[in-house]
Design a protein around this nucleic acid. Structure first.
Lengths: 200, 200, 200, 200
DNA sequence: AATGAATGAGGATTCATTCAT
DNA sequence: GATGAATGAATCCTCATTCAT
């Protein structure tokens, strides 16, 4: 099966390029990032990038999709079924904190795509946003089924949870708070949300 | 006093340029925005911009500061002393909704500066973030003094409120919700927050 | 009238660029010619060319039009009304010889546009071809009106005259014949044509 | 004799590549033609071309030589000994018309090589030009030997005949005349030439 | 002060050619 | 021998910035 091996190699190279691209895009933004530099960082020739991605824009979009997979997996894992709603919310918050710190590059890229001006990028980032919301909504429905909460506005509530956590983590970062400091807020935030939601 | 008149003229022109720049920067982002186009839109010569701003970057930063003044004023007005905490939070949320819709340009510019990759821009946007937080924290302290709530973590709570509202409005926008639809969430969100905070 | 002076300057610069461009295009062809080099040769900055021409293609087309004006003027002058048909044909041939030698650049550019593969260029060069033909046809009609010849196929004959002269001069050039040598053929060619046409 | 078979195979592949290359070169010109596309059209790998031709330039030159053989054969056949000079000239003109129409690709390639700017290509195309001239000169000498004409300037006359025919056909093409229309000029042109030459 | 013509650094992309398989 | 993945030189064009008028 040389075909499969080649396919694997090709996919591995794609991933490799994407990772280096993510670092550059996160550091400089789409426009300022330089294909040449990305190629150098990836240890390949300039032209080689164009064997894997149609153009700079497609490279960026591919990277967004790749990031989305990673993040949604992290989020799904975080709010796995076990534990109380409070515990699941805490895990969710910690997952975001972790993403914003350990995967700072990809988190920044995702946020600037979502809130930037490029419609194509925003559309792609919005897909991830919807995925997040669906996942959180599912959690709320499960909690409701268990009688943990009474939540008549699942959609709006899911958006509240996501907005609060995502933006809290990001803002705290921007304000210079350490990961440690942010993580300590986990229970406060989860508690606040559970109380707020429960009586909605 | 020709000096003062000139000073006034100069300031007026600065404002004028900034307003046109804001529109272009919001529409295209910092890199894609074109100094030439901004000059045309402002009805002045390309070179003239450089008599008022050192370079493109400084123009962008000046615009950020200008936007910040506007926004912080809107927010301060929204949470003026009168009314219950619930009412003030509702007004705050409506103010954000309004900014994101009516001042979409400047709101987008601010958000992409805050969550974008350019450190200089982020630093400037962060100033506005701190202003927001101080204003919200003040409101919480007032509510506490009145006995409306018991809130031991003023800072964290302020950040929660800001994060939730700002990001909620923006995400709802991105998801295609109408201003009408978003405004209808005002009381739900305020209620959730009051309940969540109150028992913290 | 500063406007007029500026207009003059602008037109002068356009001409200047076109002349240098013609030299490069003639030496290397459209694709191999380098905008950078053309700018250097013209003693102006790279970007300046784009203030005068939309892009490389438009520069080339402008140059073709400029050449066409020159050449058609030379041809019209050559076959001015005075003299016999034989004399006028000799002058026409000498004009072509002169063009192919003294204006070698522009003559080559025109021929490669006419016989090249770029449709836009060919269309532009064809305009000049039609102009040539009309001018020669007019001469034939005048000669016929004077009773010098009897020529029932004016159009075809004009094309014969043009084809023969243009291509003869060019081929002789390619074969390495000197301008001197080619000019000596003038009367032979004119004589041959007059005899051939007269009895057509 | 595996060697001979291989030689045959090798030569067949060369021809195959050349034919596809001719089509691309004629369609796009030397610079715009793409080695990759030629390889695809020929149904072989990109690298394989370099086993048969040193580089793009050599491929083009080989193609020119290949075309030249074809053309000179067509021309020689057209002016075979039999018939009067008028008839032979008519056949020659028809042969050119046919080449320009049925072998449009190769005719265009040859003409743009001859009148284009690349010296190496021009030199190769000039060889064909000389071959043409020799063939036509031979015809004139035969006609003179038979007493059909009295032609003191064989070389110049041959060049006149070739120039007129080649360029007439090409120009007529460029002007949009149909093959039908051009062919109808055959006797007019032959007649004109015979009359013109006869009395020279 | 105001202008806009001129500049040239910078960057995405193409494609002939190489070479390991 | 045949292949095509990899390469990087080469180039058009944009646009922030300058400066003579």
């Amino acid at each position: 099966m040389p075909k499969v091996v080649d396919e694997h190699m090709r996919e591995a190279t794609r991933r490799h390029i994407i990772r280096r691209a993510a670092s550059e895009f996160a550091r400089l933004g789409f426009d300022q990032a330089n294909i040449n530099t990305i190629a150098e960082q990836a240890g390949i020739g300039k032209g080689t990038i164009y064997l894997y991605f149609e153009n700079k824009r497609e490279l960026f979009l591919s990277m967004l999709r790749y990031i989305a997979q990673d993040h949604i997996l992290a989020i799904r894992t975080a709010i796995a079924l076990d534990g109380t709603l409070q515990q699941r919310l805490e895990r969710l918050f910690r997952a975001f904190t972790h993403l914003a710190q350990e995967e700072r590059d990809s988190f920044n890229v995702y946020m600037s795509a979502l809130y930037g001006v490029n419609r194509a990028f925003q559309a792609e980032a919005t897909k991830l946003l919807r995925d997040y919301l669906a996942t959180i909504a599912l959690m709320l429905e499960q909690s409701q089924a268990r009688g943990e909460i009474r939540c008549p506005h699942i959609e709006a509530t899911a958006l509240m949870i996501l907005s609060l956590m995502e933006s809290y983590v990001l803002s705290a970062n921007v304000l210079g708070q350490s990961e440690q400091a942010i993580l300590q807020q986990a229970s406060l935030i989860a508690e606040t949300l559970v109380q707020g939601i429960g009586s909605a």
